[in-house]
Every structure is written in C-alpha cells, then in structure tokens.
Computed example of a mutant assay.
Amino acid sequence: MTDETLPMREWTVYATAAAAGVELLHARFLRHVYERHVHDAYCLGVTEWGVQAFHCRGAGHASSAGMVMAFNPDEPHDGHAADAQGFAYRMLYVDPGAVRRVLEDAYERPVGLPFARAPLLVDARLAGLVARTHRAFAAGDGLAAEGWLAETVADLATRHAAGSASLPRPGNNPAGLRRARDHLHASLEQPVTADDLASVAGMSRFHLARQFRTAFGLPPHAYLLHLRLMEARRRLAAGVPPADVAAGLAFTDQSHLHKRFKGAYGITPGQYARASIRRGA
C-alpha cells in the first residue's frame, strides 16, 4: 500500500541523526498550517505528492511532486496544503557546521557557507539525492547516509547557490582505492564509517566516494552491501537462521536484511534458506 492509498489522515515521522548534524521529517498534511517561522539549519525538502504552498522571500510558491524546497538558515517561511488532497514530503534539517564540513572535505580547503539562490527548485537530480539521503538516515545506514548527504550538499552548493564554483578534480589514487576496497572486504561484520574509509585510503571522504564509484562501479556503501548480501547467501545456505545472519553482518535488524535481500534477489532470506535446504537434501 502506498501513501496515496492510505486513509485521509495526517501523520508525521521525526528522527535525528545527531552525530551527523541532521534531523529528519517525513509527513503528510491535510489541514495543518505552518506559521511563519525560521530554522537555524539548512532545510532541504522534496515533495513526494500533492502540492505544498508556502511564502518565502516576499513571494508565494507551490511545490508539487519532485520539486525541492531549499531554505537557508534563519530564512522565514510558512507552509500549508494547496488543496484538500494535502501533500506528503521529506525534509532534511542540516546543521550549518555539517554543511561546512562536507564542503571543506570536497574542496579540501576552508570555504564559506552556501546561500541557496531560490527557495523552490525544479531539479530531478537534487530531488533524488534529498530523498536518498533521508531514506538512508531513516534506515540507520550511516555509510550510505554520509555519502548521500555529501552529494546533496555539494550539488546544492555547486549548482544552486550564490557564487557557485565547480569542485576540484582530485588526483588519481589507485593504491588508496585498493586499500579502501580491501577494508570493506574485511569489514563485513562491523559498521564502517566514511571517516574510517577515508583514513584507510588517505583521501577526503567526498573524493574517495566519487573515485571509488568510478573504479569499482558502485559507491562504497553499495559495494559493502553487495559483499554482505553475498555472504548472507552463503550463511543462509549453511543453515544459519536469518536473524543471526542479520546480526552477524551488521544489518540494522532482520527486517533490514529482509528488505535488502529481496530487493537484490527477488526472494526473502527465508525462501532462499528453504530452497537451499531442499537442494542439499
């Protein structure tokens, strides 16, 4: 069942990723009206469906599905549904310190904070990045979330901010990339952070993620997930219960393993385990 088919009701899901300097809101509103207010964080939101109307910078705006709302820290805005159907959206609240860390890591030098040129953006790429970042933080997937957050902030700063400048092209570092890859192969059973991987590679987090994807076809978090799923298949086939497989391979919980396994292979861990038992009988 999708959000669109749920009974007409309002709901909110709020979470924090304090270590990353990020707060998350996923909500559907019908009658709720945001009063004019400000945040001390960057607010990056993507409308999933419906239309959210708001006022910002002396003008009215309407964000429909796939559009991005971008409010700078301390920028007044309000919000309400544009019609009786309401709207659903995901919002990231990113601490300015986290934005600065991402950009200094990407530019490899001190930089000023970006200022979004417009509060409403029509940009499918940025919308996808905001949504992926939100989902990764909500799922507790730290390595993926940090990577997507870096891409999101860099995309905003280089394409939609006053004084935008392109990112520098990093020098090639194949030895560092191999060290990072080997570290992932050795880390199936424990969490891996972007800082850990960058330290092993001797590269900035941002440039490591981009070069790794170019070299190996996947960003580090997706590569690690691929390795863990292959190992999960081996353990399930050997008779290890799915709950123990999930715990042993650093999945958030058994439902996380279930979702990722089915997404990759089209069947559940339990189905795979039962089929493996029948094959071996």
Rank of each mutant, 00 (worst) to 15 (best):
S63M: 08
H77P: 07
H37T: 14
S63K: 02
W49Y: 15
H80G: 07
G60N: 09
Q85K: 04
V38Q: 07
A59D: 07
D83R: 01
V38F: 04
A53H: 14
D78T: 12
A70S: 03
V94T: 05
Y93F: 13
D83Q: 04
S64C: 09
M67H: 06
C56V: 11
S64A: 15
R57K: 02
A84F: 01
Y89N: 05
D83C: 09
P73S: 05
P73M: 01
R90S: 07
M69V: 09
R90M: 07
D74M: 12
H77T: 00
F71S: 11
G97C: 13
G58H: 12
F54P: 00
A81S: 07
L92Q: 00
C43G: 12
V51W: 11
M69Q: 14
G86S: 02
M91W: 14
W49E: 15
F87N: 02
A41G: 04
A41I: 03
E75W: 01
Y89E: 00
G79R: 09
G50E: 06
E75K: 02
H39S: 10
A65D: 06
F71H: 14
N72V: 13
G45V: 15
F87D: 09
G86Y: 03
V38N: 03
G45K: 05
G79A: 09
A59G: 01
A62C: 10
P73K: 10
F87G: 04
H55W: 15
V68G: 06
A84K: 10
V51G: 08
M91Y: 12
M67E: 05
H77N: 05
P76C: 01
F54S: 08
H55A: 15
G45P: 10
P96Y: 10
F87L: 00
H77Y: 09
A88W: 04
V51L: 12
F87T: 01
H37S: 02
T47G: 00
A81F: 06
R57G: 08
S63H: 05
V46W: 05
D40L: 15
S64F: 04
E48N: 11
R57L: 13
V46N: 03
A65M: 05
H37G: 02
F71P: 06
V68H: 01
H55G: 10
F71G: 08
H55N: 13
